[in-house]
Simulated scan of single mutants.
Amino acid sequence: MSWITRVRNALPFTPKRDTPDNLWIRCPSCKEMLFTKDYEANLSVCPLCDHHGRVKTDERFGQLLDPGFTVLPTPRVKEDPLKFRDSRKYPDRLKAARAANPHPDALTNAHGAVDGHAVVLGVQDFAFLGGSMGMAVGEAFVVGAEAAIRAKAPYVICTAAGGARMQEGILSLMQMPKTTVAVRRLARAGLPYIVILTDPTTGGVTASYAMLGDVQIAEPGCLIGFAGQRVIQDTIREKLPEGFQRAEYLAEHGMVDMVVHRRDLKATLAQVLGYLQPAKAA
């Protein structure tokens, strides 16, 4: 035992206090440090620059749905159909994602109400493999749409995705027509389909169900697009306008109906539901 260890053990040092490692959070936009509790109490919106942070599934359910909603089971699909492996095996990536998230894949549905208006709400979680669209997401979307048809209720989806899930190859791309057919079934049933675009919504999700809503609502500043800005700029060999692929730019050019602050999102959604389907849930 060294002399410094003996001295340290002999002196009445107070034990080190355990400090939570999630006490602070850095705003991705303005880089300011914020108290996590204050940030979450503000609906994960920076109180300094108004940046809308990413929201996990259960938080989104709590923000938009009235108390008493029911989370629907996530459908099971065949996993790793292509036996895909990059730097890690695909099943290992799924296992890690499930250990870090409360739901088994990127899209989860719940049946509930928004200010008394019955809805089925689907939430895509970017924290689960970048919200990527694979067979499980496509099947969950169809299950959500079918639940809405059975309940004679609108289907509302909060999108957040980096695109199709590369580990499932062409099978992930097949979810684009699959979900499009589900949207058409909602239309034939006379039920509203409302999309809430959140940051980011890109790739094959944007090219399918994310842009097929009867009403398109976007959160402020969220990234919405198909290909990345650098790819587009290099292809057309022109400088892109400021704010390109952001919610406000898309609203100005008619691709989004409205941009709504998160604090007003539930009230706005309830108002839209009242216009499209006036009868409230019993």
Rank of each mutant, 00 (worst) to 15 (best):
V119R: 01
L240V: 07
L48T: 15
Y249H: 12
G213T: 07
G221K: 01
V114T: 11
G243F: 08
Y39T: 01
H103W: 09
V259Q: 04
F84A: 15
P220Q: 07
T198C: 11
P12K: 12
P177L: 11
R185E: 02
Q245M: 12
I4W: 13
V181P: 01
T57A: 02
G162H: 11
E32Q: 15
V143N: 00
T235F: 10
Q216D: 09
E146S: 05
Y275W: 12
Y155E: 06
I157W: 06
D38E: 13
F69S: 08
M176H: 04
K16L: 15
K37C: 06
G131F: 14
V142E: 00
K239Y: 08
D80Y: 02
R165W: 13
Q124V: 03
E219M: 15
N42M: 00
A151T: 10
V195P: 03
A99L: 05
L94C: 08
I196L: 14
E59L: 02
R17C: 05
C222H: 07
Y39C: 07
Y275T: 07
A161D: 07
L276H: 09
C30W: 07
E238R: 14
A207H: 08
G68I: 05
R185T: 03
A136Y: 08
G68T: 10
P73W: 04
T180G: 08
D18N: 09
F226V: 12
I157Y: 01
A251C: 11
R17F: 14
S87K: 15
T268W: 06
L191R: 05
R237G: 01
G116E: 11
R88H: 15
A207Y: 01
L197Y: 08
V137F: 02
R150H: 08
T179C: 04
G221Y: 03
Q167C: 12
A136T: 03
Y90V: 13
T159Q: 04
F126V: 14
